[in-house]
Design a protein around this nucleic acid. Structure first.
Lengths: 344, 344
DNA sequence: AATTAGCACTTGAAGCAAATGAGTGCTAAC
DNA sequence: GTTAGCACTCATTTGCTTCAAGTGCTAATT
């Protein structure tokens, strides 16, 4: 990977203009257009020499000998990390982010859904996200709600979440009092324990369950299933936004794109990584990530609040993507999210 | 609207073959191909005469003078109601339906999600559905679960459902005992009442709330919000399946299609109607429904179990749609659904 | 040594005409 | 009522030319 500093200032400037223009117009950029728009004081021939050098260095490519230049994956990466002028969001956009999260920050599900939604709406690219599911998260309370003779909803309160999608079977012969008692016993037992610790319990082998063994087996089974289910943790939003970009005028490409975005396990593995707070990460398909289509980029940020990792969220779109906007949105969403969740 | 019986048997047969072939191949069908595939005993000239007559009657159209014939909206409607040979699903497909619903029939949400999912997967078209939200559904029980100092989850058990997505604010000053007492009072009060009755209550004006007025106001507010929210009741699945069909090779068309399918209020109004049990209903875009794109069809069925209407589900796709398969899937899903939910 | 003007060369895109062929409609015979 | 036969239509394909945008290279200039 090339170091940006190896390039002369002029080369950097020219490369920046090429990427700027290409992102804006989607048309390969020519030496002539560069001198007309940005570099009136040097001639197109000089620019051609520079472009040729940048091509040699691997930052630019040509579709054919007589076409303008197009940035390479390396160029985009350099652009995001060094060349790009950082964008600021408008006040309206900032207000929009704040409003969304203030309106609906009651439960984690809403927050997470809104995160991908906001990102997708403001960037106009499909967004993806994973919720960090923390094995070390402590359980505070467990409650059963029997809503049918043979079935109960299991409500689990943790440090950061309320889980309410787990169900267990309850023997019809069991009385409400017995169920309530088992709830108390189990609740006391799990209080302060982490998911990991609880999943490792082997109720079959223990004695202190006061006869509620099968209930406990069911609950632990449900917890294990929850911990190992990866599906619900991947959220995508605005997949159809990809259609609005000119490089996706071809149905084959759209299919290819969607076949990746809809594969939750692939998204999962792409987003799972140890990023620091709101550190922007760019992955480009043509750069060896086989789960990202050739002409796509994935730009992500990892969010935390109160030192707890919330998850990794980002945008997936054409390599020719409005990185200025995307980075600005990701950074600001992170800030708002953190500030809102911190003063809970 | 033409009556099928006005057509001679031979015309019906020919029209059926035309629609069959066109659905299969997506290519305008010619007199020659008809005589070769289906009508070896009559000449292509005779078929041409019949086709010409069917065109006169409004069942067929030509793209240009020297192209084959394409069915009109009327032809498709006649095809579905009279001409089409009813398809049977394979044992594998039937097992698939049963398995899905048996695995996850615990809660209504799952059932509903799986309904659209199964329909979409088996037909390979996008599916849509609305859950019948019955004003007259009776509430059996209400429970509060306080998971944070200032907030509680409201669990509502009705005849057919468990609602668990409503939250209320709780004054921090309120003790757990007080909340539990308010729960008992409220639960007794609503037991056996319908949503409609409860939404009409005016807690501000009543006295018998033992000082829990603001909790009750909050709950009723949440219930009203739930009853009036239409968003959650519309479910769509497999929108991307539309890409697999050759008539959607054009991105403009795809956009147009998605702009309709993603508008929940439009879907809502299209699906809201008084259909009988598993009665198949076909709406064709070019037939005056302005919310359906020109070249699209919407095929729906309304499902019930134990005499209670569950909702209306269906498929939206190109007018040139595999109606045989779609109708077979819709009918069978309805049957399985009914049988599973009836012996609860 | 860097810059630039000038020119030859490449190449995709656009436009056009001719050839192709699938399909119809119509007429006259069966 | 059916059918063979033929003229006619029209979208599609193919090959060809022209056009313009853009580069690379060389030689002159600063």
């Amino acid at each position: 990977m090339q170091q940006g500093s190896k390039l002369s200032e002029r080369k950097k400037k020219i490369l920046q203009y090429v990427v700027d223009d290409y992102i804006e117009t989607a048309v390969p950029v020519s030496s002539k257009s560069l001198t007309e728009k940005h570099l009136q004081n040097i001639s197109s021939a000089t620019v051609r020499n520079e472009l040729s050098a940048l091509e040699e260095l691997g930052y630019l490519t040509q579709l054919h000998t007589s076409s303008g230049r197009v940035p390479s994956a390396d160029a985009y990466k350099l652009y995001v990390s060094e060349l790009m002028v950082k964008d600021k969001l408008s006040d309206g956009e900032l207000d929009y982010i704040k409003k969304i999260f203030l309106d609906k920050a009651d439960n984690m599900e809403e927050v997470i859904k809104n995160t991908t939604k906001v990102i997708s709406e403001l960037t106009s690219y499909p967004s993806v996200g994973i919720t960090a599911k923390d094995n070390a998260e402590k359980i505070e309370n467990i409650k059963f709600f029997r809503y049918r003779k043979d079935q109960a909803l299991v409500l689990i309160v943790t440090e950061h979440r309320l889980l309410k999608d787990n169900y267990i079977n309850v023997p019809e012969s069991m009385s409400d009092e017995q169920l309530s008692e088992s709830e108390t016993v189990l609740s006391n037992m799990v209080k302060g324990k982490t998911f990991e610790e609880i999943c490792c319990l082997e109720p079959e082998l223990e004695d202190n369950f006061l006869g509620y063994k099968n209930i406990f087996v069911n609950v632990i089974e449900a917890l294990r299933a929850y911990m190992h289910s990866s599906d619900d943790d991947v959220i995508t939003e605005g997949e159809d936004k990809i259609l609005e970009h000119p490089e996706y005028a071809d149905v084959g490409k759209i299919k290819n794109f969607l076949s990746v975005v809809t594969k939750k396990d692939k998204i999962m593995s792409l987003l799972t990584e140890d990023g620091k707070d709101i550190e922007i990460n760019v992955k480009i398909g043509s750069d060896g990530y086989e789960d990202i289509p050739e002409d796509c980029s994935l730009v992500t940020a990892t969010y935390s609040a109160n030192g707890v990792k919330l998850g990794t969220y980002g945008v997936i779109g054409p390599t020719r993507m409005d990185y200025q906007k995307v980075v600005a949105v990701l950074e600001n969403v992170g800030k708002v999210l953190e500030s809102i969740l911190s003063n809970r």
